[in-house]
């Protein structure tokens, strides 16, 4: 276990070297978010005072975007998939085949350390941003909801990571994986609730989405926080999310095993 602790340690230090990049990413990332909030405010004003969209008042809508921004900062895979693909392409994984280190566990440690480093840098601008909007910020429904929210964020992070890891494994078979990653990313962006809360979609579409892992990559934790999923529905949601995490983990392991069989360590 200790060796993985070292990986986390080194990972954090490596990532902090790019703190300026992280800061630029956070600050620039806030600009489109502010723009979307402006658009929603204009829509609510156009619809009349005190109007609501779906089950969202203006304050709840703004809270939704603030929460997904937070969840995204905590769980999004920023460069792990590219790095894994590069490791495979350049033959760097050969050393892991020889060492008593599990590559997946190694990458998972790096993923968590990157998230920690990112949070350390992004916390200040994010907190400042949320403070300026605090009058729109809705408190969690209950302490239980808040606890489940945190638990769900953990599952989201794992799900994000395992899916990205599996996608990066494509590098065993194709030279250029970035297009595939971007194609999946487009679907995730739309169907995970990045652009808008999923429950303002037509009911039929929501039902279809419920059968995919996408809502559990972002939307679900936010819905827990806002008390949209409560009681038996909350338990069911958490179980399904855990199920997707396990499925993605199984797939990641399987594809790695297949990939290794295919792997020929070019250029080593």
């Amino acid at each position: 276990m200790k060796k993985y602790w070292h990986v986390v340690n080194v990972g954090i230090q490596n990532n902090l070297a790019y703190r300026f990049n992280f800061l630029a990413r956070t600050v620039f990332g806030l600009v489109p978010l502010i723009a979307i909030l402006y658009v929603w405010r204009t829509i609510y004003q156009g619809n009349g005072r005190g109007s609501s969209i779906g089950s969202y008042s203006l304050a709840q809508m703004i809270s939704y975007y603030l929460i997904i921004t937070l969840v995204d900062a905590l769980t999004a895979v920023t460069q792990d998939d590219w790095e894994i693909a590069t490791d495979i392409k350049d033959g760097n994984i050969s050393q892991f085949l020889l060492k008593p280190i599990d590559y997946l566990a190694y990458r998972l440690c790096l993923f968590f350390s990157a998230r920690l480093a990112y949070l350390a840098v992004a916390a200040a601008p994010l907190a400042l941003f949320m403070l300026t909007l605090h009058k729109y910020f809705v408190a969690p429904r209950s302490w239980l909801a808040f606890g489940c929210f945190l638990f769900s964020i953990g599952l989201t992070a794992l799900l994000q990571f395992f899916i990205s890891y599996t996608m990066a494994m494509l590098a065993f078979w194709v030279l250029e994986v970035s297009t595939f990653i971007f194609i999946l990313f487009a679907f995730e962006y739309l169907a995970s609730g990045h652009l808008f809360p999923l429950d303002i979609l037509p009911h039929r579409l929501q039902q279809v989405l419920a059968y995919t892992p996408f809502p559990y990559q972002l939307y679900f934790p936010a819905s827990v926080y806002m008390g949209k999923s409560a009681g038996p529905e909350l338990i069911r949601g958490l179980l399904i999310q855990a199920g997707w995490v396990l499925a993605a983990y199984g797939l990641a392991r399987l594809v790695w095993r297949r990939g290794i069989r295919h792997y020929s360590a070019v250029g080593v």
């Binding site: 658009v39 204009t42 829509i43 969209i53 779906g54 652009l195 303002i200 979609l201 037509p202």
Partner: peptide, 12 residues
């Protein structure tokens, strides 16, 4: 995204 926005309003 635009399609979804205009499910809930007629004008921005």
């Amino acid at each position: 995204f635009i399609g979804v926005l205009y499910l809930h309003t007629n004008h921005i």
